[in-house]
Design a binder for these strands. Sequence first.
DNA 1: TTATCTGCAAAATGTTTGCATGCAC
DNA 2: GTGCATGCAAACATTTTGCAGATAA
Lengths: 146, 146
Amino acid sequence: MGAHQDRVDLVIKRLKQKGCRITPQRLAIIRILAESNVHPTVEEIYERVRVNFPTTSLATVYKTVSVMKELGEVLELEFSSDQNRYDGHNPSPHPHCICVKCRSIVDPELGSLAHITRELASGTGYRILSHRLDFYGICPKCQGES
Amino acid sequence: MGAHQDRVDLVIKRLKQKGCRITPQRLAIIRILAESNVHPTVEEIYERVRVNFPTTSLATVYKTVSVMKELGEVLELEFSSDQNRYDGHNPSPHPHCICVKCRSIVDPELGSLAHITRELASGTGYRILSHRLDFYGICPKCQGES
DNA sequence: TTATCTGCAAAATGTTTGCATGCAC
DNA sequence: GTGCATGCAAACATTTTGCAGATAA
């Protein structure tokens, strides 16, 4: 029962509404995603699920994350040179700070991008559905170690 | 001799300064990247190079693009679910509009993100090196076809 | 001349898929 | 009981690497 139980319950409700079944593995994955603020990879989720459910397969984690992504309950940050990262704590688009040394990802405080998005939509004629804003740099911890 | 000859010459000069050799294949790749505004994939560059140099291999295109990326002469847009896209016309970070239907990518007119970057750096303690801002939506052409 | 580049093939990486079995509902 | 989920292995897509021969400077 962490502070994230509400989010866990909400995700379960929405998955059930769509006809999905809540298996022990899925429950564990949902919890990890809801409770984590480190934007884990599928591998990291897999390792954590296997602490309690050692027979869980990587494919199951991929499949569950994929279902949650399709339902909009997890935000995927794609990387071609690395594993994708997932945010199930706050699945709506928001800025990220990504450390190029330790690959940590944090959510910065930043004013809304709504006005930028509007400016862009009117300037280009695009119907904007989503966005991605990543800042790449060196985190305070890695700056201290350099 | 297009309007992009200056950029081609500049990239050649910088590659030479770093001890790189300008082979016919590399010259063709540099030209394609400098002249193109469609943010091509490596495959697309490869197909275009092969019109004039049919023996060129995909590995050579990957290697040349990688060298240019390391020298900061091409901007890489990573995708895990698709091929990466490359901007050799303007290699400094800038916003992109990506159509989720036809996968076209255009550079929108948008005010600088410098103030947002400053706000973010002071708020998080990160030393910001770069950023990525993608807007995902439906382009005017695909809206008309829907 | 010689260090770099090319082209081929193989490897590596991350992710997806097919299918028989198992289990949530 | 039914149909979705699991777990395994194989397939897949993209990118990278190793190396022998070719070539730009």
